[in-house]
Design a protein around this nucleic acid. Structure first.
Lengths: 237, 237
DNA sequence: AGATCGCTTCGGCGACGGCCGAAACGTTCG
DNA sequence: CGAACGTTTCGGCCGTCGCCGAAGCGATCT
């Protein structure tokens, strides 16, 4: 009975549409101001302020004041994982009509999931890494192989083992593709490196990203990733 | 904006205290009737009925009618994972007073987490397996070693690899211990086998479990697990 | 067949909570 | 120093949703 009240308290915090929209916006991994979040949620700043206070009190958000702005971000990767797991269950919920917008299509194509890559791009990258024997992906976990350790380190990803004995790559269930992609420390470092190399860049102000021409070449050369290839069509004949 | 509405819809489903209590009760992994769930949530059957209909519609629950009873259970392991991730974030939320009841203590000691073992017992078992080199546990994942494959198979756990190439053991963040324990297919099979051997049994009608004398001996012999040992006290001098 | 039980549907009550307008506070800029 | 801006607090309105009593439906038991 006590467990349930914790559960309810946390879930109801996320369960309000306005707050959920703010959290979804923060899934991009960036810090946003109160007003930006108000716009994202479609409410007035004073309403947003109340919501943000509650989210912060509930340890879902961290705030850092900078001048007259207050920047809000998700409190931890664990919060991001929680939101992602909610999404994963939510998408197979009531099969109500899903009005696909251009914005949603862009998100499904390539986006960030807090700190790593997701969408069709994220899944394709995971597949390419697995195909080259750099990582192993299973239903319940993932690991970096010896060859992968070497290749990723050479690529510029910091492979320093954390507290864990082994380099694992946490799989993250993609809600649009319904398939695993690379999350965890490795996924985050991989995404950071791709941004740093200019291989990918943010498209618009949300979570959507775009692969640059340099990225297409680089991803192909380095990981054998054919982007934006949709090989099924060409190879079917 | 659309993502947020999915999130909100799913979270608000969990966010009601009565529904959350039912879901918490179902985290035991057993199927319960509507009336049992009503009692667990402290509401009348007719109110529970409405809630259960909504949870089922939202694909959180599966129902199977048997005579004049209707048995409800969590729809999937994914739902259980979602609830567990909510709990993991919830416990470090607002540090409000936590009235520890005997019931809660029993849960923290040893309980099931949908289909595997959690609590102090679950963590201790994971530690014992890791200490013997049967599994590897990291911050972001876990794997069964070659020795572990053999030992677990000998113990009677079905180690047939599923779709994945490798035997992973999904780690599950324990909300009472704040440490990893063994979940996933391996964790579930391990728990099933322990129940079958009579090493553990359900204590009461909830999620709490108890280690039998046979279990204490067996767990010690097989996995080197000293239960209910609290070694820090004896070995400190 | 009648009684009992488990579950669901309906209707109305009551309360919690989200929303905004107005206004106050602190910071930054001219 | 005054104006503009970002943010927060307060107050009141209103819709939503959870709750239960009463009643209906189907299955089971005697």
């Amino acid at each position: 009975m006590l467990e349930g009240s914790y559960l309810a308290q946390m879930a109801s915090l996320v369960g309000d549409p306005s707050r959920a929209n703010m959290l979804a916006a923060l899934m991009a991994g960036q810090a946003l101001t109160a007003t930006e979040l108000a716009i994202a949620a479609g409410i007035t700043p004073q309403t947003a302020s109340g919501h943000l206070a509650r989210l912060t009190d509930g340890k879902l958000l961290k705030v850092v004041a900078q001048g007259r702005h207050r920047y809000h971000r998700l409190a931890s990767a664990e919060v991001a994982r929680m939101l992602e797991s909610l999404m994963a269950v939510a998408v197979e919920g009531p099969k109500r009509h899903r009005p696909r917008s251009a914005r949603d299509d862009a998100l499904a194509e390539a986006r960030t999931c807090y700190d790593h890559l997701a969408g069709r791009l994220g899944v394709a990258l995971a597949d390419a890494l697995a195909a080259r024997g750099l990582i192993l992906l299973g239903d319940e976990g993932g690991a970096v192989t010896a060859a992968g350790q070497q290749a990723l380190a050479a690529f510029g990803v910091d492979m320093a083992p954390g507290h864990g004995r082994q380099a694992f790559c946490r799989p993250c269930l993609d809600w649009s593709e319904r398939r695993w992609h690379v999350g965890g420390r490795i996924g985050a470092a991989l995404a950071r490196r791709c941004f740093a190399l200019g291989w990918i860049e943010r498209a618009g102000d949300g979570r959507a990203v775009r692969v640059t021409p340099a990225g297409e070449a680089g991803l192909g050369r380095t990981f054998g990733l054919d982007w934006p290839g949709r090989p099924a069509l060409a190879e079917a004949g």
